[in-house]
Write a protein that binds this DNA or RNA. Structure first.
Lengths: 343, 343
DNA sequence: TTGTAGGCGTTATCAT
DNA sequence: ATGATAACGCCTACAA
């Protein structure tokens, strides 16, 4: 019997193909395919044979061929604004932990807080035909929105909540979190309360809104007590802004920082200048990063449930991919005020 | 003229294909392909036409089809041990900045300091037929080594140096860095010098070796002044280990931490207990993370050139992919002692 | 410089 | 329950 050129039984180099597995198992390629994917009805014994053949050959499916034939890859595209913020690393880990066991690859796109970059990432990565999308927040370009819509892909939005839109989202109310921060500082008897924010992404701004509104309602809002800068958040920036704020407004007795790294920098700067925290000025952070608990004084913060958000968002996406209807498209995971020594 | 079923001129749904671009430009698909990739010799005017057609159609090549036909994707696989360490984020950013403009996608694999996980990642991601590999360090399983070898892919090793092997690597001598740390502490007149390390990956251990050897040569080595733990490095752990070490060995007057986060934790713990740094005990970190410069006192550290390492490694890989011969397969990027207030 | 033919490895569709 | 056949969209090889 002559082998035709498509027959790979005798091939000795390169990775094994489904064909070879099929031959070794004595079945047709399509049966091997089905057996390996656990779909449809394949006789138990055949499944066993195929799996054995695959194992012996060290067979691993070619994702490109698979994607081409099925018109979709086994990946999920996750877009985050930064990798420098531990917040998103934690989120990614959580996502990973639920998607990986399901055989889905997590493709990470870092858009550096740039809407244009996010748009580019979408344009490029959508071409990979991912199974679903995990996006951060609701703020993006019109083009991005259209591409997401046009892709028809299941999509879950993380970190923020948006009840009106009908979008699937898992997060917490940024506005409420900001309000809670203000209420806490107020409850500590603080009178002249500042807000310091960097990066100025949508969520930061919403936090600021909630914070500001609460202060206003308490008759304690002063726009001079606000520093907003688009510069990237960091410990160094926190030190700098703290010094700047206290120099300009020495009477301030409470500060809410939009992220823990800023607050940590403030704590450090305060120590350097002998400013007593919380006696002279209370410092409240946001996100509760791991190191915050070890600052001097230990930083009070608002803990955001990024692990749960990541997990739930991934699970919800899994359901969407499976075609299930989501009972609760808007999942509020809340947040937690973590009181330590700095407030 | 009847359209055959392969003819997509009239197709109205789904993403545009190369065929459609070709038709619109009035050329054959292969010419369109060549024009878009900028390969071979295609008449300038045809290139223009094809590009215009592609733009009008919003054409984006299907990576799966491309990978299947060409037997390789447009991705580079980068394997790092952690995303929680800013060190690797910086490295990834640098890699990104050189590979992205060349049209290469950076696929990130986080192996969580686990050799087994790295092996899994290789097994899975090699199936994607990346153009090249960017790996961290030299420590891995035999299987991993074999897979890398068998893949025949260009590969550059980052962070450490290994002159004997003939492997391409970009990094610095971990041993020398450890030695430099010891020499510095010694030069500060420290007599009882400790070494605190977590994670215990190969590079950390090598740093320890260099550090230890230098102390031994100076007659100042005491094994009781060493804490090695496989637990993950963090600020909190640094605080804990510092307290533990000083309780057990109060006479210690200098400590080298294998990573800045540990050193930062130590500084915080010292402040909490009124231990004077550097008067009573000098604290030296490693990597020089951004926040270290803002600690109280400002942390002395050894700055590792991860940005340059990432960039150079990526550039070297690009050369390898292009089939160029590398003049300097081993690139020592050095390190820098950053003296601040803690030593 | 351009085009033709064929195949890359897998899965969907339709039979059996 | 299993298989034959034909795509999937692009690129390599070779031919013109």
């Amino acid at each position: 019997m002559a082998y035709n050129k498509n027959d790979r039984r005798s091939r000795t180099k390169g990775r094994p193909t489904l064909n070879e597995v099929a031959h070794r198992a004595g079945v047709s390629p399509i049966t091997a395919s089905r057996a390996l994917r656990g779909v449809a009805t394949v006789a138990e014994e055949l499944v066993r044979k195929v799996e054995e053949a695959a194992r012996e050959l060290g067979y691993i499916a070619n994702p490109a061929a698979r994607a081409l034939a099925s018109a979709h890859s086994q990946s999920v595209l996750v877009l985050v604004p930064s990798l420098a913020n531990q917040l998103f690393i934690d989120t990614l880990e959580a996502i990973h932990s639920v998607l990986r066991p399901k055989g889905l690859e997590v493709v990470i796109g870092n858009f550096h807080y740039s809407r244009e970059e996010e748009e580019d990432l979408l344009r490029n990565y959508l071409a990979y035909q991912p199974r679903g999308l995990l996006l951060t927040g609701f703020e993006r370009t019109e083009s991005s929105r259209r591409m997401i819509e046009a892709s028809g892909l299941p999509c879950v939005y993380m970190m923020d909540l948006d009840s009106g839109s009908g979008l699937h989202c898992v997060g917490f109310s940024q506005v409420n979190a900001g309000a809670a921060a203000a209420r806490h500082l107020l409850s500590r008897g603080r009178q002249r309360i500042a807000f310091v924010a960097a990066q100025l992404d949508q969520r930061t701004l919403l936090r600021g809104d909630g914070f500001r509104r609460t202060l206003q309602q308490a008759g304690r809002y002063d726009p001079a007590f606000e520093i907003l800068t688009p510069r990237p958040s960091s410990v160094g920036l926190g030190s700098e802004l703290f010094a700047q704020l206290l120099a300009a407004q020495p009477q301030i007795d409470g500060i809410f920082f939009c992220n823990d790294d800023l607050a940590q920098g403030a704590l450090l700067e305060a120590a350097r200048h002998g400013v007593k925290v919380p006696e002279q000025v209370a410092v409240l952070g946001f996100n509760d990063l791991p190191s915050s608990a070890f600052m001097v004084p230990r930083l009070s913060s608002i803990r955001t449930p990024r692990e749960i958000i990541g997990r739930r968002a991934a699970e919800q996406l899994l359901d969407l991919i499976a075609g299930k209807t989501i009972a609760e498209p808007v999942q509020d995971m809340g947040f937690e005020l973590v009181l330590r020594e700095s407030t």
